[in-house]
């Protein structure tokens, strides 16, 4: 196990990729405490593992794939499926500092099916290039772009109301 002598590297990585990781988690997890939990676990795992990355893209890819893996279990859990709606709503992610319009748009993004939501989160929110994001999702570039376009079309109505 590698334990860092200081956490300056971790601070740097959180500063650089914290938003990306958090957005990916929040796009798939409804409850704030659970999202926060997974967020911490992703970075603590990064912190304690001996990981060599050839470049920053590889580091970002590892962080996002780990976040996706960790959310998968929770998101697809039979426990969540069987849980009452009241439980799901009780700790939903708050509005933060977003305007009502932005909140509505975020709700629309969250309302997209997973296959369309993730491309939006990865590419538009976090600026992950198409090839890299497609690789993270395990799909072809054309399929990724196709989903991205569908997602944009699905969000179009929301935009027309908001713009």
């Amino acid at each position: 196990m590698q334990v860092m002598s200081d956490n300056s590297d971790l601070k740097f990585v959180i500063g650089k990729y914290g938003d990306a990781v958090y957005n990916v988690i929040c796009s798939r997890i409804s409850r704030r405490a659970e999202a926060d939990d997974i967020y911490q676990e992703v970075f603590l795992l990064y912190y304690t593992k001996e990981l060599d990355f050839p470049d920053e893209a590889a580091r970002r890819s590892w962080l996002i794939r780990t976040a996706l893996n960790m959310t998968r279990s929770a998101n697809r859990s039979s426990w969540n499926i069987f849980r009452d709606d009241g439980e799901l709503d009780a700790e939903t992610i708050p509005d933060d500092v977003r305007t009502p319009q932005e909140q509505s748009l975020w709700n629309a993004v969250r309302g997209l099916r997973d296959k369309y939501r993730l491309p939006v989160i990865l590419h538009y929110f976090n600026g992950v290039p198409v090839a890299e994001a497609a690789n993270m999702m395990g799909i072809g570039e054309n399929t990724f772009k196709s989903r991205l376009m569908r997602a944009r079309k699905l969000l179009k109505t929301e935009l027309e109301n908001l713009l």
Partner: peptide, 8 residues
């Protein structure tokens, strides 16, 4: 605009 809607 889409990017600004993300949670913080």
């Amino acid at each position: 605009k889409l990017r600004r809607s993300q949670p913080v």
